[in-house]
Simulated scan of single mutants.
Amino acid sequence: MAGQLFGYARVSTTDQDVSIQEAALKAAGCAIVRAEKRTGTTTEGRVELRNLIDFTRAGDTIVVTRIDRLARSIGDLAAIVKELESRQVSLKATEQPIDTSTAAGRAFLQMLGVFAEFETAIRRERQLEGIEQAKSLGVYKGRKPSIDPGRVKRLVAEGKGASEISRILGIGRASVYRLMRP
C-alpha cells in the first residue's frame, strides 16, 4: 500500500501569505496541508511541522514547495531528514528535483541545504554591516532603554525589594538585580 502525501507550507512573517504554497501542495496531491508563519532559521516553535512529522507513518511523504520552506540551516535540515528516514517517510519538493526516496534526490537535497545555510549567513553579515554603517553615521542608536535606572534606584532607596520593584515596574527581577549591582 502506497503512503499518503502530506504538505507543509511556511512563511517567515505574518504579513506573508501561504496560499500560493498551499495551492501548489494540493495540486501535487496532498490531501492534508499544514501551514505556519514562523522563521525557518530554527525548528523550535514550529508546531505544525512537529505535528506533521509525528502524524506520518512508514511509506508516507512530506511535500514542500522548496526546501527552504522546511529549513534554512544544514543542521536543521539534516536532523529533519534523519528523523523522516528513521520513520521511513520520504521528502519531496515540488519546485526542486528533491525526492529522498532516490539517491539523486538525497544528493540534491544536501547541496540545496548547504546553499540555504550560506544564504542565511550572507544575509546576516549584510545586516550586521548595515547596522555598523548606520551606527558610524549616527543614524542607528539601537533600541531605546525600556527601564529607567533612576526609578529602580529610588525604589531601592525606599526599601523595596527586587520582587516588589519588578512587579511595580513590570520588568524582570533579573533586570532589577542587574541595576542594583554597584
Rank of each mutant, 00 (worst) to 15 (best):
V156L: 15
T61H: 09
E83S: 03
G161M: 03
K37R: 15
T102L: 08
A93R: 03
T56L: 00
V64F: 04
Q4C: 08
S146G: 14
R173Y: 01
F108L: 09
A71N: 04
I80D: 08
A28G: 04
L109W: 01
E132G: 05
I74N: 12
S146L: 14
R106T: 14
I67Y: 10
L25V: 13
A157I: 02
L70E: 06
I53L: 13
G59E: 01
R106I: 08
D15N: 15
V156E: 03
P145M: 03
L128Q: 13
R143M: 06
I32P: 00
A121P: 00
R57P: 00
F55Y: 07
V47D: 11
L112S: 00
E164I: 14
R66W: 04
A35K: 13
M111S: 10
G159D: 03
A24H: 06
T56P: 00
R87Y: 02
R87E: 02
P182D: 15
L49M: 09
V152P: 00
L25T: 06
G7S: 14
A24Y: 02
D148W: 06
A9H: 02
L112G: 02
R106G: 02
I20Y: 09
I20K: 06
I165A: 05
S90N: 13
K153M: 13
I168Y: 10
S73K: 15
R126W: 00
L49F: 01
A78K: 09
A27H: 07
I168H: 09
S136F: 05
L77N: 05
E129R: 12
